[in-house]
Design a protein around this nucleic acid. Structure first.
Lengths: 152, 152
DNA sequence: ACTGAAATGTCAAGGCC
DNA sequence: GGCCTTGACATTTCAGT
């Protein structure tokens, strides 16, 4: 699918605030409401717009502790990898999991209440997954920037 | 603010799909439309619901390359830190930036088109920021899990 | 928290560059 | 092909209970 400048601006606005009405967007883009509507539908159908979601303030729901965990597997056979990835995906404390280059195999972003909850998570959940060799955790002291908006 | 089970379920649904109508939500929660409406307003006012956004498919907009960059500063005076954090925040390739514990000071999540674009980003943007000591980059081979939904 | 009603928004149809 | 106007229908929002 091909974007023009209007599509890019539209995506910019929607990534900032998806609750704007088509009327508000039509004013910003100097278009009719229907034109905006049709462009959005096209972006949804083509899969560019993947989803509409609410972002929740993690402090307000008592999930203030963010950690990144490096993980190395013992072995890298297809079977082990698939199983590990599936089990990690099922952990709701794990918001993100990436297979990465470098000394470790995976990088996980973990969100829990506090350090005690993190310890609990490591001992009772993460390290009970088989085939994990070593782990190395880094704790977030401060979140400097965090956006879901892609610059298009 | 105190949540009951209904609020938690409501947040679960909204974190999955914020485009559901209050009517659909009222069915799932066995409430009236207005009750749902009022609960959502309360969650917005209290700041639990931070924002409504569109999530864009990064492959579809030619941003398929994700890297994590560790950064160490030369010095850690207030002045240097503030300036570094401000400049990093202004880089649109940087989606996330965390001040972290461990060998490095910061961890950045960078999103660009490809390896060539990443090189460009490092040479022309990131390393032109003053006071950066050393960097260490890790490349994402595969995204195993990525969600914005917090388990409440 | 519910009902009911006004205000507002979404979306389809048809016509015009 | 993309844009506009119109109008029907759905949803949001708010007052009263």
């Amino acid at each position: 699918m091909v974007f023009d400048d209007i599509d890019k601006r539209l995506l910019f606005y929607l990534q900032e605030d998806s609750k704007q009405t088509n009327k508000e967007l039509s004013n910003k883009l100097n278009l009719s409401v229907t034109a905006v509507y049709e462009r959005i539908k096209k972006l949804e159908k083509s899969g560019v717009i993947e989803n509409y979601v609410v972002l929740v303030n993690k402090e307000k729901v008592e999930k203030s502790f963010v950690a990144f965990c490096h993980i190395k597997l013992i072995q890298h056979s297809q079977e082990f990898v698939v199983k590990f990835e599936k089990e990690v995906t099922n952990l709701n404390e794990v918001l993100e999991c990436f297979h990465i280059s470098g000394d470790y195999d995976y990088l996980l972003k973990v969100l829990v209440k506090d350090m005690a909850a993190f310890r609990e998570f490591m001992v009772k959940k993460l390290t009970t997954i088989n085939h994990i060799g070593s782990t190395h955790s880094m704790f977030v002291i401060n979140e400097v920037k965090h956006t879901t908006a892609i610059n298009i």
